[in-house]
Amino acid sequence: MFKKIKILSYFFKKNLFAILILTPAVIYLVGFLLIILFKVVELSLTHITPKAPLFPSVYNFIELSKNPEFKEAFFRTILFTFIGTPLELLIGMVAAFLLAREFIARGIIRSLFILPLAIPSIVTAIILYIMFDYPGGHINNILMGNHSFFPFKVISYPINWRGSGFFAILVSIFGKVWRDMPISMLIILAGLQSIEKDQYEAAQTMGAGAMQTFIKITLPLLTPAISTLLILRSIEMWKEFIFPFILAGSYPLLATLIERAYHEWRDPYEASTIALILLVLIIISTILIFYLLKWLKKRLVKI
């Protein structure tokens, strides 16, 4: 017992400086996080009655499950995430493979591909707001064949992009993928660069074609990069706020429904309930993706 205290006091003395300079960050981040978590749970379990606030109560959850707006938002969020995440992976991979070979001005093209990351999300959303305007936006004009460089009449009437749930979600996905493409590209590119040249040469001498090399060497060796990307990007997709907020204002996702509940319904309790549900969804989806990838890896990569 005495010895333990002695070891402990020695430990503190030796690391006193480290503990002292670590404390502010730990308190700030972990403390804030704990308070936030506590507050979300508390608010979502509180039901305000005329007499006194009722706690704990699942009233908010029951009320929400009856709300058609919540159901719609829920399915829109699923749609957004399930289209957006694979799309971002795909576009990131395409961009990375385009950059993977040596060519003149590769550095410039690479910087160009990173450019969307340098445009603030809110600005990207505003530009898309302008481009996909109805009836006279650029995209409508181009699709209607009003310009001489693209004289094909794809549609005969302008599309009201923000006025239809499907198109509004589609435009938001486009914005999100456009803006975040560089991140997935850089992750895949880093993964590609970590593959040794020898392996390709070995495959080539053994007579493997381009397709075979891709499936048997590149893809398996990219799995760590792809796993990281899928997990990080799916979290980003679930919680995306700015693009649906600006571009799909009348068709809320869960994230934008939080804003609506808070500002329009003036109901922080309902807003916290939605936030809690979103958080649980994110955690479940992350765990699922994690185990799915693990399972896939076992199946696919045979060493």
């Binding site: 670590l22 730990v26 972990v30 996080l33 507050k39 979300v40 608010l43 922080p268 916290s272 979103l278």
Partner: peptide
């Protein structure tokens, strides 16, 4: 573990934390 914990705070969805933060 502490380092990972501190850095992964950024993964916490901001839209979830915004309502409690504003209430506080």
């Amino acid at each position: 573990v502490l380092a990972t914990l501190l850095i992964s705070v950024r993964l916490f969805p901001d839209i979830v934390s915004v309502v409690p933060v504003v209430e506080i």
